[in-house]
Deep mutational scan, measured.
Amino acid sequence: MKVIFLKDVKGKGKKGEIKNVADGYARNFLFKQGLAIEATPANLKALE
Rank of each mutant, 00 (worst) to 15 (best):
M1S: 06
K2W: 15
K2D: 10
K2T: 14
K2A: 13
K2P: 08
V3H: 00
V3W: 01
V3T: 00
V3P: 01
I4N: 01
I4D: 00
I4S: 01
I4R: 02
I4E: 01
I4K: 03
F5G: 00
F5T: 00
F5K: 00
F5Q: 00
F5H: 01
F5R: 00
L6Y: 01
L6A: 02
L6D: 00
L6S: 02
K7A: 12
D8Y: 07
D8T: 11
D8W: 07
V9Y: 04
V9N: 01
V9T: 03
V9K: 01
V9H: 04
K10R: 14
K10E: 13
G11A: 05
K12R: 13
K12H: 15
K12D: 08
K12N: 11
G13K: 01
G13L: 02
K14P: 01
K14W: 09
K14V: 10
K14Y: 12
K15G: 04
K15P: 05
K15Y: 06
G16F: 10
G16Y: 08
G16S: 05
G16H: 09
E17W: 04
E17Q: 12
K19P: 00
K19N: 04
K19I: 12
K19T: 09
K19D: 03
K19V: 12
N20D: 13
N20E: 15
N20Q: 14
N20W: 15
V21T: 04
V21E: 03
V21A: 03
V21K: 00
A22H: 12
A22E: 10
A22G: 11
A22F: 11
A22P: 13
A22W: 13
A22S: 15
A22I: 09
D23P: 15
D23H: 13
D23N: 12
D23Q: 13
D23T: 13
G24I: 13
G24T: 13
G24A: 15
Y25V: 08
Y25G: 07
A26S: 05
A26G: 05
A26Y: 14
A26W: 12
R27W: 12
R27K: 14
R27V: 14
N28P: 01
N28D: 14
N28S: 09
F29E: 12
F29V: 14
F29H: 11
F29T: 07
L30R: 00
L30W: 03
F31Q: 03
F31K: 03
F31P: 00
F31M: 10
K32G: 07
K32R: 09
Q33M: 15
Q33I: 09
Q33L: 15
Q33N: 15
G34A: 07
G34E: 05
L35S: 04
L35V: 06
L35G: 02
A36S: 02
I37W: 06
I37F: 03
I37V: 14
E38Q: 10
E38V: 05
E38F: 05
E38S: 06
E38R: 07
E38T: 06
E38A: 10
E38D: 05
A39G: 05
A39H: 06
A39E: 02
T40G: 04
T40E: 03
T40A: 03
T40L: 04
T40W: 03
P41S: 10
P41F: 08
P41T: 07
P41R: 10
A42V: 08
A42M: 07
A42N: 11
A42L: 08
N43V: 08
N43H: 05
N43K: 04
N43E: 06
L44A: 03
L44Y: 04
L44V: 08
L44D: 04
L44W: 03
K45D: 11
K45F: 07
K45S: 13
K45E: 14
K45Q: 14
A46R: 09
A46H: 11
L47P: 06
L47S: 07
E48I: 12
E48Y: 13
E48W: 08
E48P: 06
E48K: 08
